[in-house]
Structures are given as structure tokens and as C-alpha cells.
Design a protein around this nucleic acid. Sequence first.
RNA 1: GCUCCAGUAGCUCAGUCGGUAGAGCACACCCUUGGUAAGGGUGAGGUCACGGGUUCAAGUCCCGUCUGGAGCUCCA
Length: 601
Amino acid sequence: MPEHYEDSRLYRIRHSTAHIMAQAMLERIPEAKIAIGPPIEDGFYYDFDLPRPLTEEDLNWIETRMKAIMREDHPYTVREVSPDEARAFFKGQPYKLELIDDLQNGRVDDNGNRIAEPADTMTFWTQDTFTDLCRGPHVENTNQINPDAISITYKMPAGAYWRGDEKRQQLTRIYGTAFETSEELQDYLHRLEEAKRRDHRIVGERLGLFTFSQIVGKGLPLWKPAGATLRDTLERWLRDVQIENGYEPVVTPHIGNIDLYKTSGHYPYYKESQYAPIDVDDEQFLLKPMNCPHHIMIYKSEMRSYRDLPVRYAEFGTVYRYEQSGELHGLTRVRGFTVDDAHLFVTPDQLLEEFKAVVRLIQYVFNTLGLTDFRARVGIRDPKSDKYVGNDADWEHAAAAIIQACQEMDLPHTVEEGEAAFYGPKLDFIFRDVLKRNWQLGTVQVDYNLPARFELEYVAADGSRQQPVMIHRAPFGSLERFVGILIEHFDGAFPAWLSPVQALLIPITDRHVPYAQEVAAKLKAAGIRFEIDESKNRMQAKIAAARERHIPWLLIMGDRDQQAGAVSVRLRTDEDLGQMPLDDFIAMAQRVINDKAMALG
RNA sequence: GCUCCAGUAGCUCAGUCGGUAGAGCACACCCUUGGUAAGGGUGAGGUCACGGGUUCAAGUCCCGUCUGGAGCUCCA
């Protein structure tokens, strides 16, 4: 995206193409009500209220008609109109009338705050037979849009609520895109296809990493051995890193008494996104939607001195949230997932340094995996919402600490209202999937509220009782979502240390199988994960199959290798390292694995 | 949750006008023992997602449910 996309020619082309789409729609379905049609990052959309569902034929017709309109050389003209004139023109177009009213009165948000000044005039933009209420700008003539460089993006209409409000009319949205040259369009469409091929739901299925069962339930992933191996490897690594950094393991159960969540303040706010309570002996239990209350109860189980702090409790804790069915998505949005959770209990003096140490740990995790394509977001309260607990002073302190830490660490970040947790502000690390959808992974949250609500304390140096501050943090966020993003990041070709199968042994003929088994015994002793392909297939077929699984090292062995006590090593990158003494291969593989290296040799 | 689309073998898909189901891959067995991107043959595998309806007859048409997909909304 250019630096000033909104000033670019591409932006005007896309905006103008959206108007042409609306014109074509009104020609196809004259009763259509038109809503809005803005440019977006990779194209544009237009929302319509239609009397019937659209068909693929409709979309093809509209696309063809759009191209024809472009070739007809219609100028774009603009004129100023009064609100009354605008209303007269758009009689029978309720969405436009609502926009006209808002422009005249000045836009007001849901809380009654003015977000735009009242306007005495507004502008109409016209091309050919179509006029739209629009601030522009547009290209000068439809012939400035290349008909061979536009496309309806999905040959399938999408639903969208009027003004993004699920309580209002649902409209039909058509996405399209436009470029300056057909090469750029083809390139874009090609990249979209490539991205879909990398989708973790497809790659994960093909690699046998996970599956879903209708009987187990939607949004509840089942990890197959290969996926569980990858996940376990990540867990063991992070567990070790955390222990080096002063964390202590804790383990807590999957359910907890509902009173825990009433005390946390969490139950009333998020009641609708939880599984229903479990009734047992006149008590109610919740499948835990978060781990913090359990960890807090461990903190509270002993008298704490300032000398004990920081206390850092870490657990790979599985939580359950009742997500809306339409939001479930592969591994990246599920109903049961494991958080690489930790809760730090610190003195106010320790907060800043501990926060920075946590951010450093998260950066170390991302760097090791080569994940660089993320943004950092400081989420603070929406000042107009009532869905938060606690007092203003604590919220200010917490947000100030987060922002100060980011500045001191030179971490580029945005500050966004309404993105806080209900108990405190947070720093989130957000990644995009192959289709540019945003997913929050790592998170660090500063919390003065739960320590107060649970009456946590420690004995200070002067003997007084003081309240600790909590830091909630999860570098991966959830193992499920993190692995989903990793699959797409690596397109299934994981670094050797994470690969479920690191070496595939390929005996050239049956008589080499015993030698392969000897080799296997040595690999096993060396801690290298392997499989032997003992199928009756020819070596070429074994190699082809292994390539599809992105197995890092292929060890081919025939007479020559057996006689030499060697293996012939081929990398998944197709590089042929030739014959190597087995011990040399093992040493090389161990080095690559221990270094968590990206390269294989 | 909402709108729209889809569901046929383990996977990817074909199946015309309504006339009782097919291919490739994978799997099993046989032949082939081959040195770096898929050798050949044979076979097994199906409640056409599930339930109901229309019909002499339903994979095909209609209704409902479930599951998946796109988008929206939501997301501790």
C-alpha cells in the first residue's frame, strides 16, 4: 500500500469503479437500494439492499457491464447540492437519505458525541446515468479505468450489516478490485490463489497435523500425532525458556466455582461467551474461560513478603469460550484452546522492569521463529464504555507503564481505544494470516483490578500490607492460533527442530531395509525424529511423497551407502548434499536442531 | 448469531432431462528391486451429511436439522 493511499490514483480508480458497479447493479436490478461503496485496502466494495439473492450469473453480468461502461468514455462530473435537493434526488433510497440527514446534522456516534460538523451542502458525483452522494475524488473519465484490470473479487455475494450494526438491516456486499494494468490484476489474483493454498486448514489437513470431528463438536480441534509433536516441541521450548527466566510451573483444573468469576468481575461481562454453568451439589462450576483466578488462588494460599516478589506462575492452561458459530475458523478461532499463560505478581516498583522483561521474552520467541510480520498495539479503555472494572487512576497508571515501556524499548506501536481487557490495558502482538485477516497472538496485560478484587497483598519492608500489581502474559497467545499462523508462515515447511518428522529414511530396495533400521537406531539414540519408507514404491516415488510432506532431510540408502556406512542426503529444498558418513549427518542434524536454525545444512 | 453458498469413497472431484454411483490419489494384494519430483496390474472401499416430503422412481426437486466455506457482527 502506498504511503498516502487515499491520495493515490489507484484509490480514485477503485472508488470510481465502485460507482460503476452500483450503476451496473441498478441496470440489472432497478429496485436495488444502494448503501455505501468505499475503496478498501486491496480494492473496494459496494453494499446493496436487494429484493432477491444474487446469483453467479448476476455477478458475471455486472462485471461484464462494468467493463462496457468503462469503454464508453463517460466523464465524472461533480456538483454541489443542498440537503433538500439531495433528498429530492434520492427519494426512495432510504440509506442515502439517512446519510444525507447525518451530513446535514453532523455525524453523531452511539454515545451522542459529534464526530463531524453539520454541512449546508454536499456533493454529487455523476458518471453516465448514475449519480452518487460522495465526497470523491474520482478519475476524470471512465476511460481512465482499465477494463482488463478490474474484477469482482469473490464470485459470491457477502452479507454485511448497515453501518456495521448487527441490529440493523443486513445488506449484500460485493467486493471488487481494480488496478492500473491487467498484469497487476493477474498478479493480485494469483497471489490470492497462492494464499488460499497456504491456508493452515488445508496445509494442516494435508500434513496430518489436526482434524475436527462433528461428533466431538465444532471449534474443538483434535491434534493428531504430527501436530501434537510440533505443539509439544513448542511447549517444551517455551517451558524451558520460562524456567530460565524465573518462572515457576503451576497446574490447575479445567473448571472452577462460578464465585471465582463473580469475584473477578468477569462473569457478568462475558456471560454470553461462556459455556453454560455445570450444576453439582447445589454449586455451579464454569469451564474456565481464563486461568487468572486459579493462579490468583495459588498466590493467596501463602503469606507473601516483598522479598518473594516477583512471583511468576506459568501454566499451559486450557480454556473454553463459547464463540459465535460463524466466527469459528480452523485453528485460529476455536472454542477450546490452550494459553501459554503466566501471571506475574509484582510490587509497583517492579512493574516497569518486569513488563519490559516480558516484552523481551516475547520478542525472543518471535525472533527465534523468524516471525517479523506483526504489529504491536497498546489497547486502552474505550472511555465511553461501561464494560470495564476498576478506578480511573489505576487504569491511567497501567496504560502509562505500558506506553513508557514501549518507548524505552523502541517498540513501534499504535494506541487504540476499546482494545483493553476488562480488567486492564494491554500490549498485543497482532499477526496477519495469508488472507490478510488479523489475529492477536502474544499479549501482555497490566492489571491493578484483580489484585484489588481478590484482596491480594504482600508484606512490605516496613511491615505494612501492600497490594501487588499483576501482569498477565502469553507469548503465543494460544497454541492453537499460534500453530495455525506458523503453518501459514512456513507453508508447512517448518524449521527442522519443529518438524514432526525430521528425517525420512529411503531404502532403495527391500534388501536395504535392514541397513535403514540400523541407521534408524542411531538416529533414535541421537534424538532425531524419523520415519522409514518401507513401501514397495520406487525411490523416486518415495522422494516425491516426502517432498509433499516438507520433510527436511531425505536419507537415501543403497548398496554404495551401506558399504560406506553412509547415507545420501537430499534436503527438502531439493539440494543434494551427496553421500555423507552417517555420523557426519547426525552431527549436522543435531547442530541444526539445537540451533533452531532455519537452514538445513 | 445473521446473509449467502456448499456437503457424493480416507482426500480431490465428475455424475446431463429425476430412472438405483464413477475417476484420480491414498489403501490391500501381485508383478517390478529401481540411485534423486510418482513403474504396471488386480482388488476392496458408498445409508450420495442426517431427517422428512413430492414422485411409479430422488445423489438429482421441496422443507427442516447438522457440518463446512465467504462476509458481517463479536472476540477475556
